[in-house]
Design a binder for these strands. Structure first.
Lengths: 356, 356
DNA sequence: CTGAAAGCGCTTACAG
DNA sequence: CTGAAAGCGCTTACAG
């Protein structure tokens, strides 16, 4: 029978083994490895040969126990299954690796107890820092702040004790809404914003505020029935929102969704109902995930550079890990509205889509 | 100025601190924590109170140094940005957490050197095990097998030394192709399979083989020009494949794509070219990601239970970690073809889509 | 059921 | 530039 790979075969070489083979002390091996102290060239060569011979790989857990750095950072998002999450995770893993950091990925989900577990787990594994999208945990993160490692928040949160990276959601939502108005829309629904959201508080509230700014500037009376709150910002959530919207019986000629995933779900639900985008309804999203560009029809969306976003977060985190005595910083990543087929101008004088 | 959260305030409590406060030895605290040895109820209470008072969280790195278990597993995929990756990552993180495991996520990418880095990194962090989708690293993983921790491979690989989880891709591709034929397609293109793929070797080869099986059974002569190889199995890759396909000038009336992401890209590229799905061309995919269900048109796809898939991988890994003396096992996860709008029957006598 | 000793693999002081 | 000692926080034997 085939011998399964069990890794138990060769007992892993330690620094002591390398030192013995090279004829030096473990400290010298350590010096070669970390490079903090100069080592004579000949000594270095002997040590490096010994490491190669033994297939030596340092044990970062042991190192971390001594010097307090594990080389692991945490990355926590509410829902790893969305397209936006995939794009960010991709960028974080890629960019963290370039800095020699490994990434422990966490999911906070809707369950509020997950957040506490997450924080505890992060501490258990002695991560050097945490990049956190606190959409659902804004309040409690603040509470636990004493127990947290260095943290960078991504996304809009009312929190000034911690470094953070975000886009100007209010301005972005306003621009997107203005665009829909310019394309001829007047009865613009919004998907994602909670009706009772306190403006300024988080992503959802800020985007709703920007939407209202644009309506106000255009002299359009906002209609609370057109503001659909969505619990899960997923494709399914977006589809459900459109069904809810149609159930109100209110006519609408455009939909601004707070994520591309929801927008794609909205387009699907409209299609299901026999409504065509953009002929009958305009649709715009947020995030500019790869899918937005390739949807049918291609989706107008508020985009920003995901790599720049993640880079900013990692830069802040690195600085916080290295030297902790700084005031909290905020980095605003530029956004731009990308125009595509889903918001091509409505035919002049078209009737807004009414109830089924 | 606001005081940033730096975590440096309260020096973290250790087991020794808890022991001192509770008036017991560190070993007793350890016993309470691990539960391996019985502890008198009154002692337990005192210790637990002390832990709560100090906000004690165990240091798993230190524990791992002593007992060889870190509680971290690795999860490595070629490309974290795809919809399928997002779905799997979501499931792995969720299900691993339920088992008390944290997940270090890795990306192997197209770069072959990444694989070596990944293995080295995995060892550095003393992960307890690794779940690996070796699409691009089949050969070298085998080479490095001595240095790897317990590994479970996901996806089809010709490798019998290691536990693995996969779907029967050949049968699945055959079923999907038979369905396309039943819907009236005769000139079926395939996207993802390399022309020169050695059948039986990996996902791509197996799916191509299943496709050829179906053509053969239906008495349809395969056309090498309809087999488009794609380097990156992304949306963009799928769109590019359709452009390449159209550039050949060969007519085609259906496309089988080896992932849903590629299928969605294909639909987009067809739409761009003025071809409608399913009126002019049928399209089917693989994986049944959430998006497939909500695409316009909704996508016919070979689906399987992602949670079952990941659960099988975790079960195998857990057993391998616990007791290492077993022959390598293979788990085949059942698949099923989900029929949707993208493969609604072609109009009888329709002309296959020809070149632009 | 509980404790004192030793050690997991590494690095930090401290010497030379 | 290199070494011997001590210790990071925990658990594994070994005693009682």
């Amino acid at each position: 029978m085939p011998q399964p790979n069990n890794g138990a075969g060769a007992k892993r070489a330690t620094m002591k083994d390398v030192a013995a083979l090279a004829g030096v002390s473990p400290k010298t091996v350590s010096n070669v490895l970390t490079g903090t102290v100069g080592v004579r060239e000949s000594t270095r060569t002997v040590v490096e040969d010994a490491m190669a011979t033994l297939g030596y790989v340092p044990n970062l857990g042991a190192r971390g126990l001594r010097n307090g750095r594990t080389g692991i950072i945490g990355f926590a998002l509410p829902d790893l299954a969305t397209a936006f999450s995939a794009s960010l995770t991709h960028a974080v893993v890629q960019l963290a690796h370039e800095r020699g950091l490994a990434v422990l990925v966490e999911e906070t989900a809707a369950d509020p107890t997950r957040e506490h577990l997450l924080v505890a787990r992060a501490r258990e594994h002695s991560i050097d820092g945490l990049i956190l999208n606190p959409v659902r945990l804004q309040d409690s993160v603040v509470e636990h702040v004493d127990h947290l490692p260095p943290v960078v928040l991504i996304g809009e949160v009312e929190q000034y004790k911690t470094d953070r990276v975000f886009v100007d959601s209010r301005a972005a939502a306003r621009e997107a809404t203005e665009h829909l108005i310019a394309q001829g829309a007047r009865r613009i629904a919004v998907v994602g914003g909670s009706r009772g959201a306190r403006p300024g508080l988080a992503t959802s509230g800020l985007r709703l505020r920007g939407y209202l700014d644009a309506l106000d500037a255009a002299g359009i009376e906002p209609d609370a029935e057109l503001q659909i709150s969505v619990r899960q910002w997923t494709i399914e959530g977006g589809a459900g929102a459109v069904r809810a919207l149609r159930a109100t019986g209110r006519p609408f000629d455009a939909i601004l969704c707070f994520t591309d995933s929801m927008a794609l779900g909205a387009v699907h639900a409209l299609h299901e109902a026999g409504l065509q985008v953009p002929r009958d309804v305009l649709v715009a999203g947020f995030d500019d995930v790869e899918h937005a560009r390739f949807a049918v029809p291609a989706l107008t969306t508020v985009g920003f550079d995901h790599v720049a976003y993640v880079t900013a977060a990692l830069d802040l985190l690195q600085r916080r890990i290295d030297g902790r005595e700084r005031a909290a910083e905020a980095v605003v990543v530029p956004h731009s509205l990308t125009l595509r087929e889903s918001t091509a101008a409505l035919p002049a004088g078209a009737d807004p889509a009414a109830e089924a």
